[in-house]
Write a protein that binds this DNA or RNA. Structure first.
Lengths: 279, 279
DNA sequence: TCCAAATGTGAAAATCCTGTAACCGGACCT
DNA sequence: AGGTCCGGTTACAGGATTTTCACATTTGGA
């Protein structure tokens, strides 16, 4: 759940799943989670990936011990298919080699019990914070391109003040594309960032939603083209007047995110991030 | 199958700074970092934020102990001003309360010594992985040679701002060649890295694509030659004015090149290959 | 100089990719 | 129960791209 307003809130609410056999620990932990107001769910064992997907988790706390012999395999599957899901492994004794292996495979943290639940929670928060930063940084600012304005605070796009009536997925898609600052995004990446898990081979969802988006954008802003196909690659968002040549925007990318010295979030222009139309 | 991607996305090189008083530990650690090919820098104590910024770090490993009495304050300043900088705190003994405090303040991980350097590195990687996911793979850099600019973010090459209209394979090919910095690449290697699997005996694909590329480059930039045949070996990419003798140039080491303030297309030193930071 | 191997060239054939529309099932509301 | 909205799946057709192939041309060495 992406709540752009939570950016500064101390402990934004998270939906977590806990798969751990240590009932005592789980009990203490869930009590704390309740107090924090986090939704949580205790799982008995390895849960199929698609079940995880449907839970729309904000974090997954996993004890390898309850997974039986296929623990590593399962761990790998989860991190491969849901790379954006914050995953904290929580075990009893473990060796350095095991921890390194787990982290390399893709776990975000590895906590060894006995462990204070508060620390576990703090670690979950730390990981979730990073992920939120991923999705959120640019997410809070509106992006304007051509006649279209994408407003994350409304979960909606507007053309000259009028809503384009995008559904949730459609909005997430245009939001991702628009925030990419003119970069070409591959289908895989789009799928992963909008749908949250890895795209199955042959899945056409992205194409279909691009079509829906295009059709709505067309209706709302007829003389502009916004979503450009890059054959064999993916899509790129850029406002272009219909029937005009794509003149090369300054390579630096007139569009989109300002250069980032890779360190802190750059001071954002107060109001809206302005995307220059190619003219 | 669909994605003959670069199998090279292993452990991307990171630039890290270590601020730790335990010289023994630091020594072991830096040795490992060297072996991994990570740039690193050992700091004697608290470094001012702006110095940190200018280092363009990929991660910061920090021992609170060497910070003296203002450790927490410093930690807080760092996480507040550089929220996107992966920060791993690394201390001797510590209490749960301290760890929770550190993590809440914004540290990404907290490692207690004694600790195996490999685990520390794995944790750094884990955090960096999350951050990278955030920024997308946008780190890709453009390569400029002669009149041609190869832009990974667009999956396309440009000649004086105009797209050369390369297909995906063509782009991957020129991208590989251009990034090779003037080295001659054998067909086998080219095929392997672009197509993703081993070249069957007698396969002419590489030749055919080189031809397509040449033809498009010719059309886009008539007075330059870019792809040179090395009989019996393979191909080499280098911008040469038509009718001019080669002359050996330095092969612009791309990686880790210091940040280059970027404006628009810089006047290219002809003949040489140089890498430009993509904004 | 001549030959065999290596490379360039052009075009047909085979594949792959995308736009499009129709369909299905679940969630939600009336 | 019926209707609507939405997300997701599938099938198909046209077009773009990749692969293959036959033949021309060049190269390096005998």
């Amino acid at each position: 759940m992406t709540d752009p307003n939570q950016a500064t809130a101390v402990a934004a609410s998270l939906r977590v799943a806990v798969a751990d056999g240590d009932t005592g620990f789980v009990q203490v932990l869930t009590k704390r989670l309740d107090r924090l107001g986090w939704e949580h769910r205790v799982l008995a064992g390895a849960v199929p990936i698609d079940r995880l997907v449907s839970m729309r988790l904000g974090a997954y706390i996993l004890d390898l011990a309850i997974l039986g012999p296929h623990a590593w395999e399962y761990l790998e599957r989860v991190t491969r298919e849901l790379p954006s899901l914050p995953l904290i492994v929580c075990t009893g004794q473990s060796t350095v080699a095991q921890r390194v292996r787990g982290l390399r495979i893709g776990a975000d943290d590895w906590v060894t019990k006995p462990c204070h639940p508060e620390e576990l929670i703090a670690r979950v928060e730390a990981v979730a914070r990073r992920r939120r930063q991923a999705e959120g940084v640019a997410a809070a600012e509106a992006v304007v391109a051509g006649e279209i304005e994408v407003r994350p605070d409304q979960f909606q796009a507007f053309a000259q003040g009028k809503s384009v009536d995008l559904t949730r997925r459609e909005f997430e898609l245009i939001q991702l594309l628009a925030a990419a600052g003119g970069r070409v995004l591959e289908r895989e990446e789009i799928y992963q960032r909008v749908w949250g898990y890895t795209m199955a081979h042959g899945d056409r969802s992205v194409d279909v939603f691009v079509r829906k988006l295009r059709s709505k954008l067309q209706r709302a802003s007829p003389d502009w083209n916004y979503i450009h196909t890059h054959f064999g690659v993916g899509y790129r968002f850029a406002a272009e007047r219909a029937g005009e040549e794509p003149g090369v925007e300054d390579a630096a990318g007139a569009i989109g995110a300002p250069p980032r010295p890779m360190t802190s979030a750059p001071p954002q222009p107060p109001e809206s991030l302005h995307v220059r139309a190619l003219v």
